[in-house]
Design a protein around this nucleic acid. Structure first.
Lengths: 136, 136
DNA sequence: GTGAAAAATGAAAAAACTTTTCAATTTTCG
DNA sequence: CGAAAATTGAAAAGTTTTTTCATTTTTCAC
C-alpha cells in the first residue's frame, strides 16, 4: 500500500504509514476510531482527521474498501486491486477477499427483469470462517 | 406494509401511517430526514425519532431495506418480503427490486476459495433505468 | 362506548460521527 | 541545505443518531 501511495504521488509520511500499518494488521476491518487508537501506538501524534483523509485516498486508489455490516457501514478492509469482494465471519468478523465472482448471469437476469442497464455491483458475503467453524 | 405492521402486533398510529406512506411514495429510497419532511405533510406533528423507530421496525420485518450508496448508507427502500435485491439508477436514483438471484455458484466458489461457510449475502446493482436510458 | 393499561410519541438533550478551518510542521526536490 | 508544496492535527462546526422522559394515543376488556 505504501508503495502504491507514493506511486500515486502522495508523500511518504509517518501518519500515513501508521494508518496503513494499522489497517493491514486488522483482520476484521477497522473503523476510523479503531485506526486512530491502533495508529497512535505507531505514531503517537496521529490525528483523527488524518485517518479520515488517508482512508479517503486509499479508497479512491482501490486499496481499501468499505464494509457494510449490520452494525454500521464505517469499517474499512484492505483490498488487493482488481475486482473482488469480501466474505465476513459472523462470529469473529474476520474479513477476507475473494476473486472470481462469476455473477454475469445474475446481472443479465436482473437486467432482463427490470429493464435497467446494469453497470456495476456491490456484493458482500457473510458466514463462518474456517477457524470459527473448528471451534464449534 | 400497514397490514404487516399490525399483524406483527404493532399499533396502528398516525405517525406510522405517515412514515409508511412517505416511504412507499418514494421511488428512490429515502433518508430519515427525507421521511420526516415528507411524512410531516401527512401528519404535521411527526417527529424524527419516530421515523427512526418506524424504520427500525420495518427493517426487522423485512419490509424495508437499507441502500448502500456512494454518498451514504442511510436511505431505505421498500422491499417485498422474500429474497430480493435492489438495482439503483445512477442517474435518477430510482431503486427497484428484482428477484431470482441465482448466485449459488458464486457462493460455492467463494466458499471453496476462502474456506468460509457462506450463509448469507448482500447484493446491490447499479446502472441506468429504462427512463434514463431513453433520455440519453 | 368507557376507562385503565399498555404502547407509542415527540421535544429536547446527549452522544456519536464526520467535515471544515487554519496555523504549524513535515516532506519533497532542485 | 532551503524554499515551495504537501500534510498534519487541534479545535470548532456541522451532521446524524440515540437516549430520556413526560405526555398523548391506541388497544382491549367490559
Amino acid at each position: 500500500m505504501l508503495r502504491a501511495l507514493s506511486e500515486a504521488g502522495f508523500s511518504d509520511t509517518r501518519a500515513r504509514r501508521a494508518v496503513v500499518q494499522a489497517l493491514s494488521e486488522s483482520r476484521t476491518g477497522a473503523t476510523p476510531a479503531d485506526l486512530l487508537t491502533r495508529g497512535r501506538s505507531l505514531h503517537a501524534g496521529l490525528g483523527q482527521v488524518t485517518v479520515y483523509r488517508t482512508l479517503e485516498i486509499l479508497e479512491h486508489l482501490g486499496l481499501v474498501r468499505k464494509l457494510h455490516q449490520e452494525d454500521g457501514c464505517s469499517s474499512y478492509a484492505t483490498s488487493s486491486a482488481g475486482h473482488a469482494h469480501h466474505v465476513i465471519c459472523r462470529t469473529c468478523r474476520a474479513a477476507v477477499e475473494f476473486e472470481g465472482c462469476r455473477i454475469e448471469e445474475v446481472l443479465h437476469e436482473a437486467s432482463a427483469r427490470t429493464g435497467y442497464k446494469v453497470e456495476s455491483h456491490f456484493l458482500e458475503l457473510f458466514g463462518v470462517c474456517p477457524a470459527c467453524r473448528r471451534k464449534k
